[in-house]
């Protein structure tokens, strides 16, 4: 199941003013894994995602993807290497149709050539339709994303990460604000995608979601990595329980 390291962070450091949001974190995501990233609010999960995807410039350390250093790449360059992500706050394009949204997220394959001034290939349209079906959005293919429900937008975002055939997908709170039925759908789809060989890294608040899906869980607290292991190991780790559930007795709300 576990192959070699696909994504690796060494001593990743990100400061905001005096605050260390990500404090020299080492981590590794192996090929074929589903890795969960958890931690209390403000522990640096999304910031770490932002460092990986180039939104934030890191203040120290290095990030390797497929063995290559991507620390100083621009966000679009990182995406083109095959690392896609979703966002905590949904970022679909409301004025574009579902199909356009999907096509958009792999357009870089054809930009900057003259071909971006044409419509996408038939094969891409077929692929967009296929992904929309896979995510139960087939009947909305030509509707503007603005009319979709919150849950459907989450699914669309997931679809947008699938379009460019990435090697690794980072999912940032894929279940927040979603009804339980859709959460099961998303879970199913993630398993299926993983079954096809896709590697995933998830930031999640829903512990059950994490323990159902993940092979391995990384726990952040105050920007530091405090644990790294299988969901069972993490569940029985005293320090994690203390940090994570310590003051509010096990609630897993956002």
């Amino acid at each position: 199941m576990n192959g070699s390291a696909l994504l690796e962070g060494r001593g990743v450091l990100k400061r905001f003013g005096g605050l260390c949001a990500v404090d020299k974190v080492d981590f590794q995501v192996n090929e074929g894994e589903i890795v969960g990233l958890i931690g209390p609010n403000g522990s640096g999960k999304t910031t770490l995602f932002n460092c990986i995807t180039g939104v934030h410039e890191v203040d120290g350390g290095e990030i390797l993807f497929k063995g290559e250093d991507i620390t100083d790449d621009q966000p679009y360059q990182i995406a083109r290497r095959g690392l896609a992500r979703t966002f905590q706050v949904i970022r679909v394009y409301r004025d574009l149709t579902v199909e356009e949204n999907l096509l958009l997220s792999r357009q870089w394959g054809e930009v900057p050539t003259i071909r971006s001034f044409t419509r996408a290939d038939r094969s891409l349209h077929d692929k967009a339709a296929e992904i929309a079906d896979f995510l139960l959005l087939g009947h909305h293919l030509y509707d503007k994303a603005g009319i979709l429900s919150g849950g459907q937008r989450r699914l669309l975002e997931l679809g947008m990460t699938l379009m460019p055939d990435p090697d690794l997908i980072l999912l940032d709170e894929a279940t927040s604000g979603i009804n339980p039925t859709l959460i099961e759908t998303i879970k199913d789809r993630i398993r299926e995608m993983n079954g096809r060989g896709l590697t995933l890294m998830l930031v999640e608040h829903d512990i059950r979601f994490i323990s159902d899906l993940c092979d391995r869980v990384i726990v952040l607290n105050y920007g530091k990595k405090m644990a790294d292991g299988t969901p069972d190991e993490i569940k029985s780790d005293e320090a994690v329980l203390e940090a994570y559930f310590g003051d509010d007795g096990g609630s897993d709300d956002a």
């Binding site: 679009y76 044409t118 419509r119």
Partner: peptide, 26 residues
């Protein structure tokens, strides 16, 4: 065209477009 929808994407969310592999500057 794809170019056109990319422009709309830049208008709506430039950072998001960037993270989806689009060279927004270009």
């Amino acid at each position: 065209t794809q170019f056109g929808s990319t422009l709309i994407a830049i208008r709506e969310d430039e950072v998001g477009a960037d993270m989806r592999g689009i060279d927004t500057t270009l």
